[in-house]
Simulated assay, not measured.
Amino acid sequence: MKEILSLDHVSYTYESEDGESRKAIDDVSFTVWDGEWIAIVGHNGSGKSTLAKMMIGLLFPEEGSVNVFLEKLDAENIWDIRSRIGIVFQNPDNQFVGSTVQDDVAFALENNGVPFEQMVPRVHESLAQVNMAGFLDHEPHHLSGGQKQRVAIAGALAMQPKLLILDEATSMLDPQGRDEVIKVVDDLKRTTGLTVISITHDLEEVLLADKVIVMNDGKLMLTGKPEEIFAHGEELEAIGLDLPFASRLSRYLRQAGVEIQGEHTTEEELVNELWTSHFNK
């Protein structure tokens, strides 16, 4: 497998106006491989947003190194590396610069000097990938939150990135909008092999990830597959994270004396076990 991004013993400290210091990132290391979906979760102040800034060069670590596409990220290569990364931020309203959907998706292409004859098919293709092909001439402020984020993802995809970073991209959306965005990202990952890093505090969002990284007080607390992470339910709740509904219900059933095997992360898994083990006898 090809390495896409790695953090090697990185640390970062914020200095406040009153002279006090706070270590936002403390000796964190991990690697992201080609085609993986990595979810980075943690409560507010856990360090995940600082990690996101270091991944795209908005901050440079005081200790350790950030390596993207096998290059150490620094001031000299930052623009070249950023051109190969798609980034979608928290508030979709802050990302629009065009008067129509197609103008907005084309904006980054124009800034990077992509010829018009290449630009048009790339705009159409990227909008089709996020199921927004029918909204070419719509004004962005008339779209729902989920549609706006899908257009933002299309704008990132039009640049043909090797890596897509979602920085709290669903946190301001209603449940329907959040589901729309998550489904689009899952479809893209499965059909194109795109590498995805999703930074979030919503544990429902990480169920489709290949690997989860849990941050707490600037440190890497846990890492593993979603089902491995959710097995630490009490630890996750202790640091302020909400478990998926199926995980919480599984624990309540165990406490009530119902025998539950394994760690269930979806309602379907839990219902299937209850039906097979307890009702279909």
Results as ranks from 00 to 15, higher is better:
F96N: 02
D103H: 14
N131M: 14
R122K: 15
F96C: 06
A133D: 12
E110T: 04
V120F: 00
Q102K: 15
R122H: 12
E110H: 02
F96S: 01
G98E: 11
G134S: 04
Q118T: 10
F107I: 09
S126K: 06
P115Q: 07
N131G: 02
M132W: 09
S126N: 06
P121G: 13
S126F: 02
Q102G: 08
D104G: 04
M119S: 14
L127T: 10
F116Q: 13
E110W: 04
G134H: 01
R122T: 05
V105I: 13
V101L: 09
H124Q: 15
M132K: 08
D104Y: 02
E110I: 05
G98Q: 01
F135V: 04
V114H: 05
F107D: 13
F135G: 01
F135H: 08
G113M: 08
Q102R: 15
D104E: 12
V105H: 08
E125Q: 11
D103E: 15
P121F: 06
T100A: 12
F96W: 00
N111A: 08
V120N: 05
F107W: 11
F135W: 02
V101A: 09
A106N: 03
N131A: 14
L136T: 06
E125N: 10
A106P: 02
R122C: 09
E125K: 11
A128M: 09
Q95I: 02
F116G: 02
M119I: 14
Q118I: 04
V101H: 06
Q95E: 03
A108I: 12
T100K: 08
E110C: 00
G98K: 10
M119Y: 12
T100C: 05
F116V: 14
V97E: 01
V97C: 11
G113L: 07
E125C: 08
F107M: 14
N131C: 10
N131F: 10
N111V: 11
G98I: 07
V123P: 02
H124S: 13
A108H: 05
L136C: 06
A106S: 09
M132P: 07
L136W: 01
M132V: 09
L136G: 06
A133M: 03
H124P: 01
H124T: 10
V123A: 00
D103C: 12
A128I: 00
L109S: 12
